[in-house]
Nucleic acid binder design. Structure first.
Lengths: 365, 365
DNA sequence: TTGAAAGCGCTACCAA
DNA sequence: TTGGTAGCGCTTTCAA
């Protein structure tokens, strides 16, 4: 069943797949599969093989779906594995098969509810195909440097990027890569995102229909594709409908920045009666400043529109009119695109746009 | 520098650490380190060794901190590695060194802001010591079954659990384990959590001082340690101060459950004028129902107190009086306790309690 | 200080 | 269908 090698210098015998060392006298007991001999706390496939009296290769096969082996054999092995509490070592498996079943997810702001929702959904969805999420946070450039090395070191099967910086460096890793809720300006990298231009236009039409007089746009980080595209759709849409004037201000996608930017916005123009914010968190910040800082009413005095449709948007205190992103479909698509790349052939980069949908609530009149 | 083996059956030479196969005629070109020979897209330490004309073992050493080698050698190797774009394979490293530098984090509700904040902080903190976060979501028992197998398969160096179920099964894995914001009722497993009993008493004292008449407690999942302990501290504290009557209701820690539970609470007792909720999300749900469902005022008609001090708690619309958990210190401590276990010797399980702190805002009068 | 070689626990190939 | 065996890319002795 197994072959043994005699090591002269140590006066010991080795199992051919060298796991246990048997002093000469022990050989007789080996075929009894004496459990006392097994002292290692971590059970390997060799342990299971010995216990079930089969080859190690068969143990491996028993844990490989779709591998052909007799039912009797598989049953025997799984029983032995269960008795010893064996779980295949995914690290060793990853090394030999060049496939770790780990997907790296890179985020810059885990506190943003939109991204934490996304992260949960990704983890859930990846689990369905037996894969795990390795999480990386990176806000600063120095952190990104580190993340790039780390994610490459772990030989992840694919990367999902939700950050706007250094995208090309991630791409240079040669690892399957999809941008989520972002797009590469050169369109050289696959991306799945909401059609921000179309969504911006949707808001423009709505705002013009409602006959607001003084309109404002609050962007997030000025050079992020989401802000650029949402602004573009909004401004273009307004212009086409004959509205030329647009007051602009920028935040950084956080609640606090939305709150503060609203103050600055009203210093610029105190007659603003409608604000379109590049995300919900800033929109909620805006509502809070309008109510508690300016002591004005929403929507009677000012209408506020957000983007994302996070859970908090539907809380009664805000009841935020916003653009809903079809996040579940976007995530399914992201994983599909990633899997196409993982499967192999050179896939040409595509950007998949999903239409945003205007959800009208009570923050607009 | 390197030794070669001649394989008779194939008529080929092998490098001693068999990476490249050289047909007989190629040997002459090898010492020129002709880059054209290197066709593999993934660079290994053997590639770097050949490029720098050193042994593979030295390459490994060059990437091992604190290993002794000449500066000249290390410089040469790192330069070669840089030229080839080499990153050590963390999977192979993990296999041989039995240390993956991966910490598994298991959560049940990634949408809860308290846990997403926690996750971000953990990932950040672990990064400082060169470790990664492998994320697992598990709400149902079937999912937990899967998580236990997966987390064990990846041979994570340690596990941080934030879920209340099946704790002992995780412990049976024999992997360093710390509970965060939970405790094992048998106290057989190390845990780091807020002193929920003390915090509950803090709220009890506050509530009695403020002379509320009809007091309520809203728990989360009834058998979770957090709900049990927070309730105990609160109820005991009230009793000691001579308040015997306490109306109780349960949610499940979500916003919606807090909203709904408040309706049921007022069906039970329509004179409630103070509610202590087992977490902020339910407290915010309660405030929303009180304002928009009951059309009462907070805090004039009803005072609401939460637990966690999530970001949303300080938003002006809620301005929630709540118990602040020292989350950063708790996370640092969790990793320290985990590292003690990882370092080796049998550590006896300890539960580290951190005092909660009452943050008084405007949701109480 | 450096190099040779063993082997971590698996998968996959080949032979039986 | 089953078993033997060669590595995956590293770390870690041991020798030089």
């Amino acid at each position: 069943m197994n072959t043994y090698t005699y090591n002269k210098s140590k006066g010991e015998f080795f199992l051919s797949q060298n796991e246990y060392v048997f002093k000469k006298g022990w050989i007789a007991t080996m075929d009894n599969s004496n459990k006392k001999d097994i002292k290692k706390s971590i059970v390997t496939s060799v342990d299971v093989a010995r216990h079930a009296k089969v080859s190690q290769a068969s143990v491996s096969r028993a844990f490989t779906p779709d591998s052909s082996m007799s039912d009797k054999m598989r049953t025997k092995i799984l029983k032995a594995a269960h008795e010893l509490g064996y779980t295949p070592n995914a690290i060793a498996r990853g090394l030999i098969s060049q496939k770790t079943n780990i997907i790296g997810v890179v985020m810059d702001n885990p506190a943003n509810p939109f991204y934490s929702l996304m992260l949960g959904e990704f983890t859930e969805k990846l689990k369905e195909s037996g894969r795990q999420t390795l999480l990386f946070n990176a806000a600063t450039d120095a952190e990104l440097e580190h993340v790039i090395r780390a994610i490459s070191g772990y030989r992840v099967d694919g990367i999902i990027l939700t950050i706007p910086n250094r995208i090309s460096e991630f791409n240079a890793l040669g690892i399957p890569l999809v941008l989520f809720n972002r797009r590469d300006f050169d369109e050289k990298i696959s991306a799945v995102c909401c059609d921000n231009v179309q969504s911006g236009r949707l808001v423009a039409d709505y705002v013009v229909d409602r006959k607001y007089k003084e309109i404002a746009f609050m962007g997030g980080l000025a050079d992020s594709s989401t802000t650029i595209d949402r602004r573009k759709g909004f401004a273009d849409g307004l212009k086409e409908r004959g509205v030329g004037k647009l007051t602009e201000i920028n935040g950084d996608y956080t609640f606090q920045s939305g709150y503060d930017a609203t103050r600055r916005l009203y210093e610029k123009n105190k007659n603003i009666d409608a604000i379109f914010c590049a995300n919900d968190l800033m929109a909620i910040g805006a509502i809070e400043y309008i109510k508690f800082g300016l002591k004005k009413r929403v929507p009677e005095d000012v209408s506020v529109i957000g983007f994302d449709d996070i859970t908090e948007a539907s809380w009664p205190s805000f009841d935020l009119t916003t653009i809903h992103q079809p996040i579940k479909r976007m995530i399914t698509e992201t994983i599909r695109v990633l899997d196409d790349q993982i499967k192999g052939e050179e896939v040409k980069p595509t950007i998949n746009y999903y239409n945003g949908e205007l959800v009208i609530r009570k923050s607009t009149k």
